[in-house]
Amino acid sequence: MEKIAGLYSYWIVVVLMMAGLYIMIARYNLTKKIIGLGLFQTSIFYLYITMGKVAGGTAPILIDGEQPVYSNPVPHVLILTAIVVGVATSAVALALIVRIYEEYGTVEEDEIKAIEAAEPEA
């Protein structure tokens, strides 16, 4: 029981991550894939932050003359970096989607494949 209470949040986060991964693999729409990527990555951020939490802790900002329990700042730093990386990747992906739509007139993966199959070799 203690185990369930202690690990519950990890499990939910894992399920959320896999929901994102599922969208990325299963959906044909390119934009939807990137939405899935966003879901996947945000859930990974959640996983990291969960690891840094200390029960009864406070944000890791030093207070003069007090010695409170602080949560672990390391995952926060890592995730700050990862968030930036995530939005950068999404931005590039979305730009590609716009161009793909211009060139192919669709953003559905299977339709694009059909169009490409009809083209001659490069």
């Binding site: 990325m24 990527l37 992906a93 590609l96 694009i112």
Partner: peptide
């Protein structure tokens, strides 16, 4: 140059 570069990039990106 080929427009398939875009889809190739996208697939690599995913």
């Amino acid at each position: 140059k080929d427009r398939r570069a875009l889809t190739a990039t996208f697939r690599y990106l995913i």
